[in-house]
Design a binder for these strands. Sequence first.
DNA 1: TCAAAAGTGTTATAATTACACCCATGG
DNA 2: CCATGGGTGTAATTATAACACTTTTGA
Lengths: 225, 225
Amino acid sequence: MKPFHSYQNPSLAVDLVVFGYSKQNLSVLLLNRKEAPFKDRWVLPGAFLQMEERFKDTCSRVLKTKLGMDDVYLEQLYSFDEPDRDPRGRTISVAYYALVNPARVAIAAGSMANDVSWFNINELPALGFDHDSIFQQALQRLRSKITYFPVGFELLDDLFTMPELHELYECILDTTIDRRNFRRKILDSEYIINTGKKREGSQNRHPDLYKFNKKLKQNSFQINI
Amino acid sequence: MKPFHSYQNPSLAVDLVVFGYSKQNLSVLLLNRKEAPFKDRWVLPGAFLQMEERFKDTCSRVLKTKLGMDDVYLEQLYSFDEPDRDPRGRTISVAYYALVNPARVAIAAGSMANDVSWFNINELPALGFDHDSIFQQALQRLRSKITYFPVGFELLDDLFTMPELHELYECILDTTIDRRNFRRKILDSEYIINTGKKREGSQNRHPDLYKFNKKLKQNSFQINI
DNA sequence: TCAAAAGTGTTATAATTACACCCATGG
DNA sequence: CCATGGGTGTAATTATAACACTTTTGA
């Protein structure tokens, strides 16, 4: 074996699929590139890994820059290795996905991009690099994960109603779910707590406000699609 | 952003958790290191990624060298990024796990290692680097995957009996499974085909020989543990 | 003919699905 | 007082879990 570090190493980047949910819309955050390659094309936000960074540090750096946000839900998705995936040279990308509440963030293009914007997941432009494929894999993972693990709460306000949670699931899974059965499964899982408060302001009956039970880490549930 | 490739890049390695199943034993392949760091300690086989390689190419190279084997089941597990995980310097490891039939491979230590050997998963030595953690994650993934996807067949001969498949599941999941319910679920999934042949040689009733239905890719099943 | 392992089916229980009525609210 | 949406329960169906007897084999 050659001595350590005599190997030439590929560049190592982190790319982020940032999901946001707002007004019954699941969206993803995209940047419009200012420079070649893929100039003026939309891509996922990302950055090269700096020597002292963990992947999550790089994610946080990107999220802070683009969203002015820290402390978001992050999960490693997959590492992408096609040799020609970046025309500038061999680059490995470790993809993460993030779940954020768009109401709490202020997106800003920064110096690197022409523009930054939320896109409804059903109305995405063709992305640069292999980012279409990364996005599809992230969506698949999110859809799978939300059926057995409480990640949905990351996309909502601290207090939310049962119909809001129900709509979130229907939107992400792109299906209809019986609201009575949904309520029962979610409540049985004990992942949410009824605060006793109610959402005021609507003309109709005021729905109960729930909060996420952050202490509970071991329970599991199954929302069938 | 700095010009491309002006970044210093971490080293990029691929590590492999090679599972083998034989005589009602689930084992993992380990190497005994000839050189520092972790000289004389057992570790997972791995290699640094060469510039033109995909991850799977690196996996194949390692498997060919250590096992004289190609064409094994490989799946990406996770990428490990702790800054101090390799004392020689910053190294990212992309972990894969492989499923092989030990009967078909001939393991050989090669010039890099003192020794190479199968270890029963319940009798592993403490591994070098962060390989204990990689192994644990691989075992967890295998256990999860085998309950809903037909990966078990990769560990058996082309022809196998229902009791053999049943034992494999019990061994991997470290539990008992009712053999009548197991048989029904596996057969309902249509992932295996009764060849009409029987395993001869035992003193007792000769069990039917099945083969894996490779054409079927979409079905799913659920073995509950 | 016997011990050991393989093949098979049925019943009880639990989980899921389908479905309808009452309640609270503001206009 | 009414239209709208939110809250709740039950019956039918389906899936899972528990369980025992019969068959084949070579010694």
